[in-house]
Design a protein around this nucleic acid. Structure first.
Lengths: 242, 242
DNA sequence: TAAGTAATTTACCTCTTGGTAAATTCACTC
DNA sequence: GAGTGAATTTACCAAGAGGTAAATTACTTA
């Protein structure tokens, strides 16, 4: 029984375990390269198995995607709901949510991008399933951002929509950075985010020493001219070059 | 001469014009679906021409990509350099840069994603060319973010790196939102961003009335234990579901 | 009007990829 | 030790994508 004559036949890996391996490999592949660029052969190879087996266990490519998506989507949704439900300063909610997400993704960070894959074939089951999860998460995010905008005195619905996108994508950015820095624990990431948020505040809050409320242009939606305060709008500098 | 017997032969479109059409179509295709998912046949069809002609005019797929990339990259770099060179409050630089970018992209918004395409075949000319432009832009961004961090009193290089990514991706997010709202002028977008920044400030600025410096954990990079304060880290809730 | 040339297509080739049917190997029983 | 069932592969197929050689059409000009 040293070297088996051929490769066919069982390798002694029970079905549910193999299936699990496949899901993990596929999640990495989908998350890392995106649905469109992901290759089933590559997934199979990661597991050390044939494409065919993959199909037999998990069906079509879209089926496989959905099978990967579901657990991640559920876990993330749970984590976010929990984080938003916790008592405490509402101004810290974003950080709580981030920590929840980081913890949920700890052992499979790229999984976030499975959920937010932009290369899903439109009209398919995959896109449908993903959009459901995203809608649920977006609804929660919308709660948060709307609340935030209200606090800040803004009421423009487009601002709210844009802010929601910014927030969602921001999470993606942070996770992507995290993927490239495997050493960071979820806690460390959360702290880093807190620091970054503080800097972001400086960005809009004017580092100019306090006591000069004059030129804080932003804050009210609608009418008012852009860099209007200075008198001139710094209109289009020169338009195009090519 | 009503209906030409066959379709072959010239349609009377001069070479350089056709070439321009191709570049525009390709930029949209690349920007909209990403290099990997973009199809040459689709580009050709947009122009109303054959794949072959595309190849004859602009070479291989990567060649085509580079041809699309170059003008956009140049224009964006110009715009950003200009914006950062302008005199004025450094706290407004981000907004000036944004306006510059919006103006540069006005007639081809998706072009941004040509530059920041994540599906480029590694090792190829396309990836190389894109990385050069990105490096140039990143260097400028790094100037900005580092300066910002310094102002905010932080010195952690990883924070700086993360912040740079956040900024770059933020631009992408805003442009993506912009693509979906064709009505917005660059000026309107800039104003919207100003408002959003203000809200972001609120996010980290703590709406809690001043005078509670106690629990502001963040602020110093490095050592200090994670959520150690709370005792436990809210470990994985239940791990998996499937 | 015939030649020359620019613009464009037809027909093909090859490689990759998602997907399937049929065989093969192994472990365990009766 | 023959049979049964689970695990797994081999051998294919069709579609689509990138890419190329060779033909075809039309405009211009001598």
């Amino acid at each position: 029984m040293a070297t088996p004559r051929s490769k066919a036949g069982t390798k002694g890996v029970p079905r549910h375990l193999r299936r699990q391996q496949m899901l993990e490999a596929a999640t990495e592949e989908f998350g890392g390269r995106g649905f469109a660029a992901a290759s089933l052969a590559a997934v199979a190879e990661r597991v050390g198995v044939t494409k065919t087996l993959l199909h037999q266990y998990l069906g079509t490519k879209e089926d496989l995607y959905v099978a990967c998506l579901t657990p991640v989507g559920d876990d993330l949704l749970d984590a976010i709901r929990t984080a938003m439900g916790e008592e405490g300063t509402t101004s810290r909610t974003p950080l709580r949510v981030l920590r929840g997400i980081f913890e949920a993704l700890e052992e499979r960070r790229e999984a976030w991008f499975v959920l937010y894959d932009r290369s899903l074939p439109p009209g398919g089951e995959a896109a449908r399933a993903a959009s459901i999860y995203r809608a649920a998460i977006d609804a929660l995010a919308a709660d948060g951002t709307t609340e935030l905008l209200r606090t800040a005195g803004s009421t423009d619905p487009l601002d709210a929509d844009a802010l929601r996108h910014v927030w969602t994508d921001l999470v993606g950015t942070l996770v992507r950075w995290w993927v490239k820095h495997p050493g960071e624990t979820p806690e460390a990431m959360t702290r880093r985010c807190a620091r970054l948020f503080a800097v972001a505040a400086a960005l809009a809050g004017d580092p100019v020493p306090p006591g000069r409320p004059e030129d804080r242009t932003a804050g009210r939606p609608g009418e008012q001219e852009a860099g209007g305060a200075e008198g001139r709008t710094t209109g289009t500098p020169e338009h195009r070059s090519g």
